Amino acid sequence: MNKSRGKPGQKYQNREAYKFDKWRTDPKAKMLAAMQVINCCPKCTQVIEWKIQFGKYKTLTRPATCLDCKEKAVKYAYHTRCIPCVEKSKRCSKCGDSQSEFVNLPPPSDSELAKKDAEFKSELKRLPERKRRTLLRYMEKLKLDSENPENENQEAIKDKLQEYTEKYAKNDFEFDEFDDERSDVSDDSDNEDLDD
């Protein structure tokens, strides 16, 4: 056989991509279709997504042991580290590689979202009314202009808020200083009345 020719490609190409959940209606298939791989490097993310795409992903029946903290806290199949350990060490949850960036980060929790919202509102309260309304109109304009307002415009809004805060924010000052000045003025006027 002639080795220079090599192996030919597949004879027939598929017209449609394979769908593992085409005929499946069980809740596991729906869960896998909506699943997102988090805290993994690009290579491990690609491997796990392939398993999900072709129906080879097997979920954990009980939590696995974390390699770093030795606790049963790993909730995702094929992962070897729990989420707190991954956040501390900044290593891939599957292979432990610390050189590459994570592809998908976990979504923020409700408490984190509430904290960010409270910080944003406190920053807004520090602005004068005119600048606050200007910023709110700017935010509305950005939401109307974009298709995905949640992700695209966050940086622009943060930059604008930071700029306004630096320029126009009200600093915390004591009102006693004004009271002292008014009392000085009133004392002087009382003295003038006595002199007459």
Rank of each mutant, 00 (worst) to 15 (best):
M31G: 05
A33F: 08
M35L: 12
Q36P: 02
V37M: 07
V37N: 04
I38S: 02
I38Y: 04
I38C: 09
C40Q: 02
C41G: 06
C41P: 05
P42M: 01
C44W: 01
T45I: 01
T45L: 03
I48V: 03
E49I: 02
W50D: 15
K51N: 12
K51L: 15
Q53W: 10
Q53E: 15
G55E: 06
K56S: 10
Y57I: 04
K58N: 11
T59W: 09
R62G: 09
K70C: 04
K72P: 14
A73Y: 09
C82M: 06
P84R: 04
C85Q: 00
C85W: 03
C85S: 03
K88D: 14
S89N: 14
S93W: 02
K94D: 04
C95D: 05
G96A: 02
D97Q: 01
S98R: 09
Q99Y: 03
Q99W: 02
S100P: 04
F102G: 00
V103E: 01
N104M: 05
L105D: 12
L105P: 10
P106L: 01
P107Y: 05
S109A: 06
K116C: 12
D117W: 12
A118G: 11
K125M: 13
R126M: 07
L127P: 08
L127G: 04
L127R: 01
P128R: 02
